[in-house]
Design a protein around this nucleic acid. Structure first.
Lengths: 233, 233
DNA sequence: GCGGCTGTTTGCGATCGCGCAAAGTCATGG
DNA sequence: CCATGACTTTGCGCGATCGCAAACAGCCGC
């Protein structure tokens, strides 16, 4: 494996303020790998042998129920840790991680964790914070699913995607990795039919532009209004 | 404040295998407090100044949306940590904690965290694991809300409550703190009317026995069947 | 350039669960 | 012992969303 350069991670918020030595300590047990789109980085219920950081690309974290239903727990953006099941005492991954686009991933064997945490305490803190933030976000998702209409949830999901991975185009802001209606349905707990219908409606009203595996937001403000549109309560 | 005795926490799984000195180190910055039923232990969006451990009683963790909707994120059982927002870098509590029954709570000021973690590394690991487990559970909740019918979700919620806080009675296993239909609705993302209807139905079929702020499970196995009853997929 | 595949759109009927409304019923305090 | 309030039950109608089915459309490889 080639030696990894600290410039790979020096700019990441997770490692802000670390010394060069610390960066090297972090990188020395790491390996980097490439994953083509749709490749599985790790699978649900597989033995959790490593944890990961996404250098470039997009990763979809998917949970599959015993009945075969899939739910997209989240998309991982560049610079984020993922697959840190082991940090919380699990021996298997609770979800699968799929490359939503071509990816470059840093991987550490779990065995490196104690030493890393000892040598770079900020790394452990970063992991704790990552998990904590996700807990928050996941609970926010629960609230949405409990209290909001499908249209609001989809609006929120699209806005989140655009915010996380938006790319400006002449038409508006588009999500810069391929995403299907089915994917959006699996993020919001609905069906691709309903997503398609809603998006079509928005497109007719000029809020978004659709396309094959593509969504472009033309009028984010209008989407925000839809997301906030209270009904119950 | 009275000196706290290590026997308070010596038996808790979170502190298994610690020495007496470590237990004392953990307890020395802690204070204990009592909360009557329905008292607020901390409130959502309040400044997070402390973290807590439930010694006895039951605590309900509630999130309220800007529109005023309430969702019960979880019930805290005896021996569990809660309100550890600060560990993940937050300055305010993301939810309220209400005593669902009379409670005894240990409280540590946030300032004690770094020292504790240094002196008793297992304490930090315990916190990380607690958060990790909750993330798992919360994601499981998202899956349920995305893929299951209301009846299944209620069955699951009741089973979880019974498992966590069940008490045997001649009639069956009852939840050993007061819980309303409204509470169950807020756990499962539905309305108290629907919960009431479903529970009435179950009662007629002899699966449960209802009562004012009380649910007794007569036939857990049948409830499990309902919970697993696949429909979609 | 042409299948064939994958993803998208749309119609329609069924239904689950909600919202509203009103009537019980149990516990508590005066 | 009764009044009061909190909790629960139940009926009814409606609407959002699903499930099924079928037609369409962009993209890839041959």
């Amino acid at each position: 494996m080639p030696p990894l350069d600290r410039s790979l991670i020096a700019g990441l918020p997770a490692f802000a303020g670390l010394t060069g030595d610390q960066l090297d300590a972090i990188l020395s047990p790491a390996r980097s790998g490439r994953f083509a789109r749709d490749a599985e980085i790790f699978g649900q219920d597989e033995e959790a042998t490593a944890f990961h950081l996404l250098l470039s690309g997009h990763v979809r974290v998917v949970r599959t129920s015993p009945e075969g239903h899939q739910v997209i727990a989240r998309y991982i953006a560049e610079g984020e840790l993922f697959g840190i099941a082991m940090a919380m005492g699990r021996t298997t991954y609770p979800a699968s991680a799929i490359a939503a686009a071509d990816c470059v991933v840093l991987t550490w064997p779990n065995a490196a964790w104690p030493d890393l945490q000892a040598r770079v305490p900020a790394f452990g803190a970063s992991a704790l914070q990552t998990i904590g933030t996700r807990l928050q976000e996941t609970q926010a998702t629960v609230m949405e699913m409990a209290t909001e209409q499908v249209e609001q949830r989809i609006a929120r999901a699209v806005l989140r995607l655009v915010q996380q991975s938006g790319r400006k185009t002449p038409d508006g802001i588009e999500i810069d990795f391929p995403i299907t209606r089915q994917d959006i349905a699996e993020m919001t707990g609905t069906t691709l039919h309903t997503v398609s219908r809603l998006l079509s409606g928005w497109e007719q009203r000029g809020l978004v532009r659709g396309g094959r595996q593509k969504v472009t937001v033309v009028d984010p403000h209008a989407l925000m209004l839809i997301a906030e549109n209270r009904r119950k309560g």
